[in-house]
């Protein structure tokens, strides 16, 4: 079976091709691809563009506002005598809590609908991506529902973040020590 398996497939393909050519018919596979391309071209004419200006403006406003609120928290924690790093870390946790609360109250999905990337990119969006599956899959139990699917959306960010961080830090360490 090992011997010539590949050859047989190839010759069968060749034979099919020759048969279609002799019969003066288009190769059905080629014909299908041509139809699909033709359809895609027609469909593209009717496809609406995303409301780009509106989306960009709202992404900027929503994302900017969340960062501005973060800066207000940083200033608040600094005024309590914390260092910049401490204040920044606590501001992040505060925003995580706010994002979680707004998700729980059913508000954050509406913010996301309007703000798009402006709601997804700030750390509040990270909270939303963890809290929303936590709530949604709770009905399937605490182990396979809540716990197993907690990172079903945020998982890729954590995974690739770790891999990228290790690579990046290692290169830096090797180059500059």
């Amino acid at each position: 079976m090992e011997r010539g398996g590949r050859f047989h497939t190839k010759s069968a393909e060749l034979l099919a091709q020759v048969t279609w050519e002799v019969a003066g018919l288009p190769d059905p596979e080629e014909e299908r691809k041509r139809q699909a391309a033709e359809f895609a071209a027609l469909a593209a004419q009717y496809h609406p563009h995303p409301p780009l200006a509106r989306n960009l403006i709202f992404a900027f406003l929503v994302g900017g506002s969340i960062c501005a609120i973060g800066q207000l928290f940083i200033a608040l924690f600094q005024s309590l005598g914390m260092t910049d790093v401490q204040a920044s870390a606590r501001a992040s946790i505060t925003l995580l809590a706010l994002g979680s609360l707004l998700t729980g109250l059913g508000v954050y999905d509406e913010i996301g609908r309007v703000g798009g990337a402006g709601a997804a990119i700030p750390i509040t969006g990270f909270a939303n991506s963890i809290v929303s599956p936590a709530m949604e899959y709770r009905t399937e139990g605490l182990v396979f529902g809540f716990a197993a699917r907690l990172f079903s959306i945020a998982g890729p960010v954590v995974t690739f973040g770790i891999l990228a961080a290790m690579a990046s830090a290692l290169i830096r360490f090797l180059v500059t020590g």
Binding site: N55, G106, D109, G112, G116, A120, G125, S132, I153
Partner: peptide, 11 residues
Amino acid sequence: YPNEFGAQRPM
């Protein structure tokens, strides 16, 4: 997505 996830739906 989960219902409370803030995804933007395409047109």
